[in-house]
Design a binder for these strands. Sequence first.
RNA 1: GCUCCCGUAGCUCAGUAGGAUAGAGCACAGGAUUCCUAAUCCUGGUGCCGCAGGUUCGAAUCCUGCCGGGAGCACCA
Length: 551
Amino acid sequence: MIRSQLKQLVDEGFARGVREGFWTDAAAGKYTVEVPKHEGQGDFSTNLALVVAGLEKCNPRQVATRLVELLGDEGPMIERLEIAGPGFVNFFLRPSVWSSVLAPIREQGERFGRAGFGAGEKVLVEFVSANPTGPLSVGHGRNAILGDTIARLLEAVGYDVQREYYFNDAGRQMRVLGESTRARYLELLGLESDFPEDGYQGDYIYDIARSLREEHGDRLKDADISVFKERAQEAIFADIDATLQRIGIRFDSYFNEHTLYEEGLIDDVVALLQEKGLVYEKEGATWFRTTALGLEKDRVIIKSTGEPTYRLPDIAYHREKFRRGFDRMINVFGSDHIATVPDVLAGVRALGYDDARVQVVLYQFVTLLRGGRQVKMSTRKATFVTVDELVDEVGVDALRFFFLMRKADSQLEFDLDLATQQSQENPVYYVQYAHARLCSIERQAAEKGLPVIDFEAAALDLLREPEEFALLKLMAEYPAQVAGAARDLAPHRMIFYLMELAGRFHSYYNRHKVLTDDADLTLARRCLCDGLKTVFRNGLLLVGMTAPTRM
RNA sequence: GCUCCCGUAGCUCAGUAGGAUAGAGCACAGGAUUCCUAAUCCUGGUGCCGCAGGUUCGAAUCCUGCCGGGAGCACCA
């Protein structure tokens, strides 16, 4: 907000310089106004002179001098300007401008930080998309939290977001699931059973088998595999659903791969690709000529058995996303899906759609540490830790926080010992405690009989401590943080922002009292704290956490 | 062999579409509570930003090659 006002001033100065022939408009939109890294370099800084000088091949310090002349060296916001280093222009603002961030925060309340630049564009965020073969494991957890938080961020900046879960209840995996369930059922009946070699070994299969036995006795001993498969799938899906609800995630739609077959959409895609000469037969299989689209080798889309490989439905599914009218499509995938992405995008492109509208967020694997040792995980062997188990141990807030703490590109080390101990080492509490403390101050104020905050009556220029300026500056950055995190699909930035704000607040709290003997100062500081509380609350809710009022 | 991600302090990681003097938490050591919650704060220091070149006024950031770790490279999803 303050930054954007300043940016406007700089833009005007730049435009005047263009009119007066000091420079061309080549640098328009290329320079920035930023908060400098180091103390003593002003409240904001622009690299305009460096950018202009680079494009026009002239001396940056001369350009900076011109700019300073054009801007005038003071004004209602600016106290003084300074040319520094290779040609930065540093802005030193009047201290009073900082407290002006409090009014909009107060007016906008829970809307503070939201933006409208998404302009109602329709975005489909597809995530989790785990086939119902077992409970959600740690890897799915990262997917779920990432996808949901990205959706929240996009909603916050004005996109019309739809959350979708794509799944497949046919196919080999599910057949194995059915066989595994039947084997357990027969085993429970004391009958001969041959558990599939690559079957699912988790105890949850026993649970499902047990419920079948209770309901049907031994009447299913000769039943078709589909009975077992359907029952298993149903039970597991209910389980997944419960887990998701528990961690605050709901989907707007579920898309079953079945639909693509039933509505002939698979055949459509093959026919369309055929028309374009991108399909051929070889060794009994149908191949997609991806080499013609710039990829390394051709891929099979229909096996010699007549069954499609995963690529074909994936392409058809993405075609449906376009046909359903989405402007942007975001997929959250584990890094093991890396190889499939180019093929699907090539398919989309071949069908005449703009694949730039499809964005894939790939996240690296989660390694689980317990007792300092890596836990090996396998879905089949059921040696995995489930999301439910994690939530049991650490709670929803810590789960979300830990999964968001790292950028998607980084492998995430989930230290169970750290996350499970509810101690001060746990950074989750650090942030939440800041909010609880702010609430506590207001409770104290009420107990002392202080009146409700009268914002209009407050003398905000009494906020003059360096720690207060630091807080106000950081609060003013909040909307830009949300916008940046949404733009780059990078939820971890919100976590880092909140940790920094919490650090500054705790530090301030220890050094200065809010509730003092000076009524005016107290009121001003309560206004500051009120604003902080709003920012913490908004930030925590935005990433799907709670903002506790006491701890 | 090929593709993608990662490599920054002892450990775990940030670094916001190249910017000024490199950042945080943890760990380690010491200190702070008659006072709004000590789940807090304060004080200590550490870096060949994996290596080598290149691009430019300027590189942890961009390009090339190499080294190390991870994920892939199926008529599995």
